[in-house]
């Protein structure tokens, strides 16, 4: 199983890095979104993968039934998902604002634009 998740994470990262290195700022944002997925999966896999029960306490018991999936990385990723969405939303508005100002989506052109 490790090998599969390694391939997935590596593959998404490669796509993300390639997109981040593009000149078009729209592609840059798509790359950032992909990067978020890859990072989350990396944390997820680091917690140990198991097709076990979710960490939910059944009625009448005080702890989740064994074996259950590690809840801590899940909590961390949950935070990460939400924050990366917040950042993404901000980036998108910023980019469209920058496009309005510069009239171009090429980041190389941003350098030469003085405003």
């Amino acid at each position: 199983m490790q090998i599969l998740i390694a391939i997935i994470v590596g593959g998404i990262f490669a796509c993300a890095i390639y997109m981040i290195l593009r000149r078009s700022i729209v592609k840059l944002i798509i790359g950032l979104a992909l990067l978020g997925h890859a990072a989350n999966l990396l944390i997820f896999s680091a917690g140990g993968l198991s097709k076990a029960h979710p960490a939910l306490v059944r009625p009448g018991s005080t702890s989740p039934p064994e074996p259950y999936a590690d809840p801590l990385p899940q909590a961390l990723i949950l935070t990460a998902i939400v924050i990366s969405f917040g950042v993404l939303a901000f980036m998108m508005v910023l980019v469209s604002r920058a496009y309005n100002a510069v009239g171009n989506d090429d980041t190389d052109e941003f350098v030469n634009t003085e405003r």
Binding site: V9, G10, G11, I12, F13, C15, L42, A46
Partner: peptide, 8 residues
């Protein structure tokens, strides 16, 4: 990508 796969 290879580096991240190795990290996993």
């Amino acid at each position: 990508g290879a580096m991240m796969a190795g990290l996993v």
